[in-house]
């Protein structure tokens, strides 16, 4: 790459910092709380079959669930009281994270449809553009697509051909590597 990427977004302003911290805290509280409640409910639903030799499959998860609920409650309290240094995050940044998650999920699904290297090339262009905010002209996008394809093919060569990790084969891999591992 010859030029540095540029970001579409400007740095945070001091005024939005508090709101962003609240957003991070809110997300963490929701996720941690959901995990604790989900685990507690499902641990309590486990069959209580005590054995002669041990405590059965339920006792340990139930104890873990109780400890998890307590630590999560205290941890959430610590967060809500603002006694923990929380990383500020804006809605734009969260959108980028969400896009990255969706792109990665689509990448995993698309390798079976178009092959690993082809999916990797498209994934690298989309990630650089939509997740990291790199502004690309049509020419540079095409160049990045080629670079992504080359990286994908190198990874395919190393892992599939040399290390026998069976990766989904696309047309380009088929043509270049002679349909190996088809």
């Amino acid at each position: 790459m010859t030029s540095e990427p540029t970001l579409a977004e400007t740095p945070h302003e001091a005024g939005s910092k508090t709101e962003s911290t609240a957003l991070s805290t809110g997300i963490a509280v929701a996720v941690l709380g959901a995990i604790a409640v989900f685990y507690l409910v499902n641990a309590l639903l486990l069959p209580d079959t005590e054995t002669d030799e041990g405590i059965g499959p339920r006792a340990f998860p139930v104890v873990v669930a109780i400890v998890l609920t307590c630590t999560t409650a205290l941890g959430v309290l610590t967060l809500l009281r603002g006694r923990v240094e929380v990383q500020a995050v804006s809605k734009t940044e969260l959108l980028r994270v969400a896009i990255c998650i969706v792109l990665f999920a689509l990448f995993a699904a698309s390798i079976f449809l178009i092959g690993f290297a082809e999916a990797a090339a498209i994934f690298s262009v989309l990630t650089s553009t939509f997740v990291f905010g790199v502004r690309l002209s049509l020419k540079r996008a095409a160049w990045l697509l080629v670079v992504g394809l080359v990286i994908g093919l190198v990874l395919f060569l190393v892992f599939d051909v040399w290390l026998n990790v069976l990766l989904p084969v696309g047309w380009i891999e088929y043509l270049l590597f002679g349909g190996l591992n088809l």
Partner: peptide, 26 residues
């Protein structure tokens, strides 16, 4: 000097291969 926007997709590609290689499953 390699910027993260170009490094990140490669790391995610490696992450995908690493996970996929365990059971050959998505």
């Amino acid at each position: 000097a390699i910027p993260m926007p170009y490094m990140a997709p490669v790391i995610l590609m490696l992450a995908l291969i690493s996970c996929y290689s365990i059971h050959n499953s998505a």
